[in-house]
């Protein structure tokens, strides 16, 4: 009864009402920011008195915004590549291995995902102060890699666990080298896992704020740090413009994921 949509009676209306309101609650702030970024009011009055592109012009005219976006992008790409490669190698070890500490090791690899980021941020900040990595690209990459790797390992191990190893063994029996069999048989079969690993790693680094706030220097800051620093001063509509571009990127990524998933299925 309660799990049959057509037999819920008037409860159906209540459930749908709550769901529609919740969906609106989740969606409206995003649409609202996108609308405000085109509004002419400096004080973000809604509905806007007029429409303008000047916040985007201001955003694009300020080299610091572009620089920080470029920094974020470079870091996120390097982190994605390293995280997927490291995740692949580690996942092969974790899924195929029969050593005694396997479960403990798996848990250790996932810990950065569940611990409060602020603890890692403060700890790495202190550590990097001593070894001179604060405010460097290497420092950003290493700290984001620690945060991204669990997602990569999780996606790839679950794909590998779903892959029947005897197919790889068959390729080896047919004359392929073990390495060739992995590259040409196993990798294509787990490509959906590798793809999710890449997307999650990219997003983890690209959106990461807390570690970046501690790590940033006046000469090297990521986009989230720039947004954070701007927001601490005032609620300028330029941030609305930047946010809208970030939302656009999210939508593009979602479309990409949907297209790739469809492609992988067929």
């Amino acid at each position: 009864m309660l799990l049959n949509f057509d037999r819920l009676g008037w409860w159906k209306l209540v459930l749908i009402g709550i769901t529609v309101l919740t969906a609106a609650f989740l969606l409206l702030p995003i649409l609202f920011i996108a609308a405000l970024s085109f509004g002419s009011s400096q004080w973000l009055i809604f509905p806007p008195p007029g429409w303008t592109l000047k916040w985007y012009q201001e955003l694009l005219a300020d080299p610091r915004w572009l620089e920080s976006a470029w920094t974020s992008f470079r870091i996120a790409i390097i982190v994605t590549v390293l995280s997927v490669l490291l995740g692949l190698v580690t996942s092969f070890g974790l899924t195929r291995g029969r050593f005694i500490f396997r479960e403990a090791l798996k848990a250790l690899f996932l810990t950065p995902m569940i611990l409060p980021v602020v603890v890692l941020a403060v700890a790495l900040y202190a550590f990097f102060l001593q070894i001179g990595l604060n405010g460097t690209l290497t420092g950003f990459v290493l700290s984001h890699l620690v945060l991204a790797l669990p997602f990569s390992i999780l996606s790839i191990t679950s794909a590998l666990e779903g892959f029947d190893k005897s197919i790889e063994d068959a390729a080896v029996l047919c004359g392929a080298s073990p390495f060739e069999a992995k590259i040409r048989v196993t990798l294509p079969a787990i490509s959906h896992g590798i793809f999710s690993a890449a997307i999650f790693s990219f997003l983890t680094s690209w959106d990461e704020v807390v570690v970046a706030i501690f790590m940033a220097s006046p000469t090297l800051q990521t986009l989230p740090v720039k947004v954070w620093a701007t927001l601490r001063q005032d609620l300028t509509p330029v941030v609305a413009a930047a946010s809208t571009l970030l939302i656009l990127l999210t939508v593009l990524l979602m479309v990409l994921v949907a297209v790739v998933r469809k492609g992988l299925k067929s």
Binding site: I30, F32, D207, A240, S243, L246, I247
Partner: peptide, 11 residues
């Protein structure tokens, strides 16, 4: 998936 700061800014 929307940037955390963008969502917080909206609020």
């Amino acid at each position: 998936w929307t940037n955390l700061l963008a969502r917080t800014y909206a609020w």
